[in-house]
Design a protein around this nucleic acid. Sequence first.
DNA 1: TTGAAAGCGCTACCAC
DNA 2: GTGGTAGCGCTTTCAA
Lengths: 340, 340
Amino acid sequence: MATIVDVARRAGVSQALVSRYLNKRPGVSEKSRQKIQTAIDECGYRRNELARSLVRTRTRAIGVVIDSLETGFFEPLVNGIIEAAERMNYTVLFCLTRGRMELKDRAISYFTHKMVDGVLVYGSDMMDRKIIDDLRAQSFPFVLIENDEPGVPVDKALVDSRDAIRRMTEMLIERGYRDIRYIPWGRGLRAGLERKQGFVEAMDAYGLFDGERSLCFAGAPDLEPESADVFALLRDMAARSELPEAFICGADIRAADVLMACSRLGIDVPGQLGVAGFDGDALMLPYYGYPELTTMCQPLYEMGERAVEMLLARIDEPDLPMRTALFAALLRPGETIGHR
Amino acid sequence: MATIVDVARRAGVSQALVSRYLNKRPGVSEKSRQKIQTAIDECGYRRNELARSLVRTRTRAIGVVIDSLETGFFEPLVNGIIEAAERMNYTVLFCLTRGRMELKDRAISYFTHKMVDGVLVYGSDMMDRKIIDDLRAQSFPFVLIENDEPGVPVDKALVDSRDAIRRMTEMLIERGYRDIRYIPWGRGLRAGLERKQGFVEAMDAYGLFDGERSLCFAGAPDLEPESADVFALLRDMAARSELPEAFICGADIRAADVLMACSRLGIDVPGQLGVAGFDGDALMLPYYGYPELTTMCQPLYEMGERAVEMLLARIDEPDLPMRTALFAALLRPGETIGHR
DNA sequence: TTGAAAGCGCTACCAC
DNA sequence: GTGGTAGCGCTTTCAA
């Protein structure tokens, strides 16, 4: 493997000059440029970025730590990140952690051991607290996405999900819905809590909140309800003719569960039952022959972009005050909420 | 930022001893261990991996270059890769290239500039030829997944898709299907070609191949048919009462298109029409109320594992002969193929 | 416009 | 057991 020394020797100039040429810095005569380029071509020289990063203390790469990427939901987020980074001439590396602390630790550790200039950490896992403390202790540049560790001063980009669900709930109420139930999502995730609170607040404000009756699966606080649970819920409600007027779900996947159950049970949406989701997940419901879901979309593309901008700013100026980019979710009117 | 020198000074020992301790090498007295660990804790020392990698010429990380990951299809592949790497104590970095050559170049360039020990390149884009040549020229360790650049000696892990589609076709023929049509996938991809060939070979062997009539969309060689095209095809066939007995599709997504069209057009599967796919994609058809697709599954988990093993072997011994890991796809019997 | 040389933080060899 | 020190390949003063 050829090094800069080989090139210099071959071109009959000094290392310093070659370095200057490589970095496109002024002060290299046309003659030298020629000689150096020839030497480079001849010996197939490629710069060792490791060495370069070592002396410059910059890698021009950022790392992203995230559980998984294998759903359409993440596409806009990833695009926002990649494109913003590309504009600033940065490379983005993803480490997938599969919900396992060891993998998360390993990823963070790899990144922070000076292999990238900063990291983006996605997700609102409350267990991340340790990682956040660690990152802060090292004063390694990082930005949190979708994670609000209250009281800890960090850079973060997140959606105001409480406000979003509140607005969704209000919309349903304005449209005449009264008996609205909430199907939760995200146990153990801060975002899950926030979403539920938004619902409760809005219902309360209109005097419509009815305690456990308004909150499905509230009796099993450790259960993250899944498709089968949602189906059973609807089947039982339908059997007892006790269907509410609408469901608001903490995530689009749960709303999809409701739609599937309705389809199987012969419940008309939105005629008999209104359904609202949260996330703006690309579930392709119309493709599969179901109505487009009425939901709140997280502006993930913009969040990705913004997170990168914040991170690069932090890398450049470590002493910048910490910033929070709060994004409003956007109502995407579908066909699953009508009027009453 | 504390360095090894600071630790050594603080502990009152030499750098060399600290290094030995850090690398868990024998020959450090218990007394020294104590002093060093204390010093490390006191000044919050973290090893600079950049410097370490520079001198060891090893990073213990591998890179994966892939267009995108945001579909369930990639989950087993990613898991196979991550888990195999973890067992060997390697970190996996993903670079997503979004079908754009500049991003692919940038990713490869970042990785090969000594930031990782080797790369996995996924996909059968024929444009990759340049990249492959480049990697070979530098003799940088790499393994191709799902890409067969015939005649070029490289390490690769791939599915024998020709054989797989051939077997699928034979199965249909044995079950009494005669008028079978092929819906292509993957124009411009080598894998797309192979899949079609498998179909043609099997049909031919039974004297059932009927030229363009057997191959849908053959008249528009540059068109990668999409959902709408598939729907139009079935609609027209149904209108003219010219439905074949079965469709074999080059990819599960196309087979899903057929199922959607059938559902809309009131065609019974498999009663009136058989449908077979390819990939073993996690499309969750039953979730959406459709029959489970009969398809050939790519053993992506095993392929990912294997690719990592091959790569690490190559990293350790650059002069190993090049190897090809050829995987057989596995028939997953669903409910979309019956008997005739 | 050019070159010598001092590091960046670490490992590993060799001598004690 | 321990320490001195020569690099790894590059950038960047500082002088010439």
